[in-house]
């Protein structure tokens, strides 16, 4: 029963919503609207569950692992502070926005900006003219890097055109192929889930 009920629900909802899309009857429309509300409720419940799990995990760590205690306490304090600040007010001059603007956003931007340094050292160490293939990669990278900045245009008007061609034609062609593959794969996996063939989402060894 533990296995059959979720399978039954997924197949039932999957087939019903699929039919509703192609046969738009009023009853189907009402069911569709209700299903959208249920999706929101389920997802919001998932967020609550995630928050509770986060708190439980860090409480446990703070209690049992001495070396990780400060980090866990900090994480719990941050969670509580943002929760309380958000519950009080989220308007333009609120504490919540102040904390977001002056703590969370700068911290995330700082971490993300470190990528530039990694890219620079990786380019210095990795881009080597060792073979025809690496030479091709190196040439394309250089053309795109210089062609996508105004300096490229100052050097030669051909450079931005070449960079645009590389981005718009070969890169997009590869990306289009990947997207079509992903699309077909998504349809196949969805059908397998709806028909009960794919059961990995049930978890465990099922």
């Amino acid at each position: 029963m533990r296995l059959r009920l979720p399978l039954f629900l997924v197949t039932g909802f999957g087939v019903a919503l699929l039919l509703q899309y192609f046969i738009p009857l009023p009853a189907g429309q009402a069911f569709y609207s209700r299903a959208l509300e249920w999706m929101q409720v389920i997802f919001a419940a998932g967020l609550l569950l995630g928050g509770a799990n986060f708190a439980r995990l860090h409480l446990k760590r703070a209690a049992t692992r001495k070396d990780e205690r400060p980090y866990s306490l900090l994480a719990l304090a941050a969670l509580a502070t943002m929760l309380v600040a958000g519950a009080v007010s989220i308007g333009r001059d609120s504490t919540f926005l102040w904390l977001f603007d002056n703590l969370q956003a700068p911290m995330q931007q700082t971490v993300f900006s470190l990528l530039a340094f990694f890219v620079a050292t990786a380019a210095y160490r990795g881009f080597r003219l060792r073979s025809v293939e690496s030479g091709l990669l190196l040439s394309v990278a250089l053309i795109v890097m210089i062609g996508r900045i105004p300096v490229g245009e100052l050097i030669s008007p051909v450079l931005p055109q070449a960079a645009s061609w590389l981005v718009d034609v070969p890169a997009v062609a590869a990306k289009r192929g990947i997207l079509i593959g992903v699309g077909l794969g998504s349809v196949a996996v969805s059908l397998r889930v709806i028909l009960g063939v794919e059961r990995a989402w049930l978890g465990g060894s099922q």
């Binding site: 620079a120 080597r128 996508r148």
Partner: peptide, 14 residues
């Protein structure tokens, strides 16, 4: 200028 710096690094590295 960051792109130019990386290009210089690639050239120097090679």
């Amino acid at each position: 200028s960051a792109h130019l710096a990386i290009i210089v690094l690639v050239v120097v590295g090679n």
